[in-house]
Design a protein around this nucleic acid. Structure first.
Lengths: 265, 265
DNA sequence: CTATGCATGTCGATA
DNA sequence: TATCGACGTGCATAG
């Protein structure tokens, strides 16, 4: 990684550093005092304070306060970025986004740290269980849901939606299965209900509706009961064992014991 | 702002710097090569690459790749953070979150930049139009919706939800109004439909249902038609004019003209 | 503390 | 390109 680092630079001289960095698709970090205006789908104003501003290699901009997960202001990667020094005002960074049309303006009155560097990051990112994979695993291993279940289709179009799994049970009844990877809410039950009703209208036969999730909110359980829908708890750890991707678990104990080989590949 | 900045530090010596920084509730930035494992609601693995890691003053952790708005991995502010140097492995940062129980592990094999500083940020943040304010403005100025409309309540409980505005029209018909600050989708129409149906069941009278938004998706329009619901376009700029908060617009021209007093307060 | 719905949601897939 | 649905959604608020 090649980078440029400046401590407490003068704002005037920084303009060209930033422009150069942006032109060469570097990642820029600025730490200092600024205020921020945003105007677009909504509008906001952030009064002066010390923040971290990140301008990424694809033009994404993040303004982070010293606390919290979310950036207080931002612009996704489609931005056009201008950098100007205005005497008596400060270092002005202006980001324009098309569709939706949005403006973001950052005005620095002091900068403590400037960093610009080309980060090289080709590392692969794998998410091991998302809802799609959970669906595929259960579709390929329907006994995890119920004995004697035969899966006919995944993402079967029903009404104006798609039910996750469509199957026939051991008594030859039709089954619509809706999956949630997290706690199922009433919304999930209503979604399943919509499918069941649409299926009934479309195919003339009322199917069983089963909601599968690792947990259920009370209102979900109540609604399921009222709407004559079934629900079934699923153990994600168990599902994960059937994943084709090998998942290497990282445990807290890896770091609290003295073992040195936890990360050997 | 007091801060500590190190260029290409040795990982061994960095451990104490980081611990000290975290203890004193400083914001920590690390730029270097790392890999990341996550395990919780889902699991993920990020192979080695150069990234920016932010540990905020409240314990929020963000791992940012050189592109994109979203952090590739993160932990919100409820984390417990451990920092360990493991010979032959690297600098290990471990963040544990309760509820939901989630583990995040970052392993640095090289660090180019270490920054730790106490950012002072008391600046006020104002969002000028969110849905709540849009609702209040329309409730206080119902003529913006329709002539002769009398608002009875906002956030009126209907069924197991709350309709944004409840009103009586000039013909004394009951009206349920659902607001969207952005393009209304079919989901928004279905939500309104739920309220209209629930109201009918609860109060024995079928109310008018009006969906108000600056734009509508085709399926929203179609669904509204099918479900006998009304829709009305609203101009957010017009609504904004009735806002009690004075909005001072920040325009691109502010920075492209020579004026120096654009940010005077 | 849980449940509910908004968000400048963002992001990917799809028609 | 617009629309749709998922997300490790996060987050505030109401009950």
């Amino acid at each position: 990684m090649s980078f440029k680092l400046l401590e407490s630079p003068r704002l005037e001289e920084l303009v060209n550093y930033i422009k150069t960095a942006l032109n060469s698709k570097s990642t820029v970090l600025l730490i200092g005092e600024c205020r921020v205006d945003y105007e677009g789908r909504a509008s906001s104003r952030l009064e002066p304070g010390e923040r971290l501003v990140i301008i990424k290699q694809d033009g994404a901009i993040l303004v982070h306060r010293p606390t919290g997960y979310s950036p207080v202001n931002w612009q996704p990667s489609t931005s056009i970025i201008e950098v100007i020094y205005k005497e008596g005002v400060g270092l002005v960074i202006h980001a324009l986004r098309d569709r939706p049309r949005e403006y973001l303006t950052i005005v620095f009155t002091r900068i403590n740290i400037f960093f610009a560097g080309k980060l090289v990051d080709a590392g692969n990112f794998t998410m091991y269980i998302d809802e799609k994979e959970m669906r595929d695993i259960l579709a390929n291993n329907p006994f995890l849901i119920e004995d004697g279940l035969r899966v006919i289709a995944v993402e079967k179009p029903v009404g104006d939606g798609f039910v996750d799994i469509y199957a026939i049970d051991k008594d030859n009844r039709h089954v619509l299965i809706e999956l949630k990877r997290v706690t199922a809410t009433r919304e999930a039950v209503l979604q399943l209900y919509k499918y069941v009703e649409a299926y009934k209208n479309e195919f003339g036969e009322k199917p069983r509706g089963i909601l599968i999730a690792p947990a259920f909110s009370p209102s979900a359980l109540e609604t399921a009961l009222n709407l004559d829908l079934e629900y079934k708890y699923i153990d994600l750890k168990k599902v994960r064992e059937y994943s084709k991707k090998k998942v290497r678990r990282t445990l807290l104990s890896d770091f609290t014991t003295g073992s040195k080989n936890d990360f050997s590949h």
